[in-house]
Structure formats: structure tokens, C-alpha cells
Design a protein around this nucleic acid. Structure first.
Lengths: 333, 333
DNA sequence: CTGCCCGACGTTAGCGCTAACTTATTGTAT
DNA sequence: ATACAATAAGTTAGCGCTAACGTCGGGCAG
């Protein structure tokens, strides 16, 4: 392991003081232009790289942010993480990635750890922490962006970004109606899920708006995967044979629904139309290709990081951002 | 933003010196047991959290490692990242996640940045850096684990972890042979890919070992996705109608192959058997379910992190680790 | 020619912590 | 009782950097 070259090394090699080198390298005023060029050149030749740790200790800034997700393996968060990292890179920030595994204790431990490392800001996805704990966190981190979680009252230097699930559900149902569908079912996700709740609301309000009553019989909860979709679809068909459209919690559920509809002898989309949510790669691989609600998650990640930087720099803009899903029409509806 | 509580605060509150508190909190000898307990309790009450930056500056350790991947969105790297993060968390380490986007310049910039932040070690996945640059990196980072990349000569405090693609390909071909398949084709990935090269070698050697000659006509390169698999399969079937088995670069290619085989009026696996690589979730969703080579990537991630910690602590164990893929037999072969 | 301001550079102190040394206190063998 | 460990503390210095202030000289108005 090579020895580190410090500012002092560069300074003595250049025959000037520490501060002159510091100023030259950080492009701060107080150095002559020719001197600055000479120093920068020398520093490069010597292979000087600033010690960010020392710099952080002196300035109280780390050019580092924390990104906390339940599971970076989930494509939803992977896409967001990629977006965050992309714009972080452009701004010379680094990100600490932490998984919580949906475990509040681990989440809390992660936040403590990030705090100890002095991150300039925090992007918190689908936090499972109770509201009071969140407020404590807001008060100690300089800036926080909350993704997929709502806040009762707006908080200074905390900004929320949410997908507008209600509106998305609304759009899907409206599309079904435009196609003349009469009996629209909804396969919801786990009852604990925030998005599940919001989508159900959108489903209900769209039905009421369309003048069709909401029938609890046409709603079924399930595990958010293919198998869950199969089971839920089977019981829906058994219970309400007239249904001619199903709005699904996500694309995996939609795949299960498609499989089960076919196994029951009906056709997609002729007899029963299906709309999913997420637009995962699989949506275009299977036949029929899935009509689905798409959100640009990578874009959300970029937006989150940009917003966070705004807050860090004091230019706190909005307080709650809503992202609208786009209906991508393919073959299943 | 609340004021930070420092060691000095705790010390004066306890009426002892800085060092006594430091020793108490870090479980170092030189403090009486009762005193230690009292200090730890007091520190907790005051909400003291050590400033890792100051600690790092003093000790030259950061309990932080860098994880560099081409794209954290790719499930391959996402799984590895999850494994790395899991064991990092258990050891109270944090990870800096960086994407390179397959861009060597960005990769180099990322490494510089990580170095400036003083990471204790580095896990580098599928590096695109030339060998010479890698050697320079080895000399400045205290510890490096290289995933999916081979090294000509062993290097101190650098350890490689690779999937044994040759052996995997070998296993797949052997399985085909055991089933009596005679004309085994191979759809390879991009020529630039290291794994593609290794799998091709395994394919060739297995054929030779089986006493069947290697026919260049039975190998086709393609983009590593479903569409690529479709195209490659179409031209394989046109060129060599006798083929009765296809080994595919990955599962997505296998999906394309299955689709195209069927469209050409043949059956999977009766007429043509198909084996993929990776065992992605899709492999069990589509019908027929894909027979594929599985590696536990999360396990690789955990292994990488554990190994890295070993190197950091000076207990450098192995130098090159090979992971053997397991053939998961399902329906497509 | 004097005074004053401003830009270019140097010096000092301190961020919060720990390594390494020094000092006080106790116990134990002689 | 004396000497000498061992243990429990305190003190000092410094990690590499930057904020803040200090110094010096030259340009320019009066």
C-alpha cells in the first residue's frame, strides 16, 4: 500500500504554504492565477488526492448520502437506486446503500450508522418506521427525501415523493369503461401495503364516478406474486362468473391472472381484459403482452437525488411530489 | 438540526477525562468495570453517537467498503450486492455502491472517489479496467475482491471470485448426452463477454470429451436477451435442422429459443431440449419451466464480503475462488 | 508623498477522536 | 516496611484539512 500524499507534501514541493495549495485545489479566491495553475499541475504530477475524511471533519460536509431501501434486489428499488446513483455521481456524491429487509430495528440501526458517518442527506424508501421515529430522524439529518410514504404535516427539509396510485387505478378503470367493460374486478395486494390501500381507493372512486356501484365481491386480496394472482383469479371467477375485466395489484399478479383465466377456458382480452402495474420486463415477454401502468422509477431516483441536493443547499423547493403513472396499452386489455 | 454530542460533552458530564470515556465506549482496557458501565449508561442517556469521521481520521479505518458494479439494476449484481450488504451490516460496515455503466472512465473515477473516502476495501464486479490499471488499484487499496474477472498472476491482498462457467457448460452438455441428444447447439452471448468465452470453452471440451466433434455451424452468437435468442434459434434451425438440444447463454435467451422452437412447429423438450443459465425468476414462471444452471449469487456476495474482511484483518486465505453452478432440472430439458 | 484598500499569501487554531506516553493508586511479594 | 508490578486514570500530540484572521506590498486617489 503506497503512502498517501498530503497537502503538506504538495506544499513543500511547491515551496508555498499549506493554505495556498488548499485554495488552489479548491478553486477558492486568494491565489494568483499562474500560481494556481502551477500548483494544480504539480499536485497532479505527485498524484495528490484529497483526503475526504479530513476535509469532512473540517467542513462538516461529506458529499455522501444514505439510501435506505427494504431490498435492493427488488427491481422497484433497484431502478430507483440506479437513478439516485446516476445523479449522485454527476455531482461527485457517493451513496451508502443500506437494506432493511422490512425490519424496523435494522432500519433504525442503519439510520444510526449513517448518522455516525455524517451523511449530508438521506433518501428513505418505503420506511416501516412509526411516524414519531421519523420525526426524530428529520430533526437530526440535514435533509431527507421520503419515497413511497406520506406525511401528515409538512416538515422542514423533508420532502416526500409518491407514486399517485389512486390516479393510476382511476386511469385503468376508466380505460376498462371506455372499452365497454361492465364487471370490473380488482385483485389487491397485502392489506398492510400503503400502495394497496391507495389503489383500492382509486378503484372505488373510479367505479362510483362511472355510476357503477362498488361491489366488495369483486375485490380479492392476495400475495403480490404469480401464484397469488392465480389463486385470487380462481376464486373471483368462481364467485362472480360475469366479470369481464381485472385490475391487478402488479404485473406478477397479472401473469397469474392471465394463466388462470385461460385455464378456465376464457380468452384474454376478449372475455376478460387484464391490466397490471409496474411494467416489469416480463410484461413484454409473455403473450399476451401485459397492458400495465408504467412509472419511470429511474427518473424518480434521479428526481429524489436532485431534490435532496436542493434541500442540502438550502433551496428547499416543493414539499410533496406526486408522480403520475402512465397507462401502456399492449395486448391484455 | 440538533447539536451533536461529543466525547467531551460526555466526559464533562461524567466528570472524567476524554480518554476514559473513549476507552469505556470502545471496550478497551484501562477503565474500571463499574466506571465503564456508568459511562456507557450516561452516554446512552445523553444520546451520544460517536463521530465516525473523527474516528476514521485518527485510526485510518472507516468500517466502510466500496462495491463497484456495472449496473445495480441487473439482477445478477443486485443479488450480489444484497449478499455483500447483508454481511457488511452484521459486521457494522457500510457499503458505498457505485455503478460504472460499463464505462471504464466512470469506473476509474469511482475508484478515485472511493479511495479519497478512505474505504477499507473494495469489491469490484466485472471490471472493465485494463490489467495494468487494476494493478495500480491493488497497490493503493488495502484489500480488493474481484468478482467475475481473472488475474494472470496472484496478487497480495487481492482475491478473485469467479463462477466456473467452463464446468457449468460441461455439466449441461453432459446432461444432454446422458439423455441421448446427438446434435447439441450453443447460443453464445456477446463475443466481448468473459463468461461467454468460458462457456464456449466448456461446451467445446465437453463435446470433445464425449467423442463428438465440435461443429462451428452449431454455434451462434447473439444479444443476451429474449429477442437475441429468437433470432439465433431461427438461424440455427434453418442451418442445421437436425439439432435436438440447445445450450443457451442465459435464461432470457432460452425463453427466446423456446418461443422460436415452438413457432417452427417443434416441441420442447421432446424435439429440442433447452438449458439456460442464471435461474432467473422467470425460469419458473413460463411454461415449460426452464432447466438451468443455478448459482447462489447472494451467497457469492456474502462470501466476497467475508473474504474481504479476512484480507483487511490480515488473514488472507485463498487467492482465487471458483463457484460451481448447479444444474436445476425442470421441464425444458 | 501619504494614507488606504485590496489581492496574494502565511499563520494559527481547531474539527472529534485515538495512540502513546505520563502519573496516581492499589495490591503483593520480600 | 520497601520495592515493584499492575491497574486506572489523565495529558499530550496529531490524523489532514479548512475557517478565520494576520501580514505584506503595490496601486491609486488626494
Amino acid at each position: 500500500m503506497k503512502k498517501r500524499i498530503t497537502l503538506a507534501d504538495v506544499a513543500s514541493a511547491a515551496g508555498v504554504s499549506l493554505m495556498t495549495v488548499s485554495r488552489a485545489i479548491n478553486n477558492k479566491p486568494g491565489v494568483g492565477e499562474d500560481m494556481r495553475l502551477a500548483i494544480v499541475k504539480l499536485a497532479e504530477e505527485l498524484g495528490y488526492q484529497p483526503n475526504q475524511i479530513a476535509r469532512s471533519l473540517a467542513t462538516n460536509f461529506t458529499t455522501t448520502v444514505g439510501l435506505v431501501v427494504p431490498d435492493n434486489t427488488n427491481p422497484f428499488f433497484a431502478q430507483i437506486a440506479r437513478g439516485v446513483e446516476d445523479t449522485a455521481y454527476k455531482q461527485n456524491y457517493n451513496i451508502f446503500l443500506v437494506n432493511t429487509g422490512e425490519n424496523p430495528a435494522r432500519e433504525q440501526a442503519a439510520l444510526d450508522s449513517l448518522w455516525q458517518k455524517g451523511v449530508d442527506g438521506l433518501i428513505l424508501c418505503s420506511s416501516r418506521l412509526p411516524g414519531e421515529s421519523l420525526e426524530i430522524e428529520f430533526s437530526r439529518f440535514p435533509a431527507v427525501v421520503l419515497i413511497n410514504r406520506e406525511l401528515k404535516d409538512p416538515v422542514a427539509h423533508a420532502i416526500t415523493i409518491n407514486v399517485d396510485d389512486r390516479r393510476g387505478a382511476h386511469r385503468a378503470i376508466k380505460y376498462f369503461r371506455e372499452q365497454g367493460r361492465q364487471h370490473i374486478a380488482y385483485i389487491d395486494g397485502p392489506a398492510t401495503s400503503l400502495s394497496a390501500k391507495r389503489r383500492l381507493e382509486g378503484y372505488q372512486s373510479a367505479l362510483e364516478e362511472a355510476g357503477i356501484g362498488f361491489e366488495p365481491d369483486l375485490v380479492e386480496c392476495c400475495a403480490p406474486d404469480t401464484e397469488g394472482g392465480r389463486i385470487a383469479t380462481a376464486s373471483l371467477i368462481a364467485r362472480a362468473p360475469k366479470i369481464d375485466a381485472i385490475y391487478c395489484f402488479n404485473d406478477l399478479v397479472a401473469v397469474g391472472a392471465i394463466q388462470m383465466v385461460r385455464e378456465s377456458g376464457k380468452k384474454v382480452p376478449e372475455d376478460i381484459a387484464i391490466i397490471g402495474v409496474d411494467d416489469i420486463p416480463l410484461a413484454t415477454i409473455i403473450r399476451p403482452q401485459i397492458t400495465t401502468l408504467h412509472v419511470n422509477l429511474r427518473h424518480i431516483g434521479r428526481l429524489a437525488m436532485r431534490t435532496l441536493l436542493d434541500v442540502i443547499e438550502g433551496g428547499s423547493s416543493a414539499t410533496a411530489i406526486q408522480i403520475e403513472p402512465v397507462l401502456v396499452v399492449r395486448e391484455s386489455a
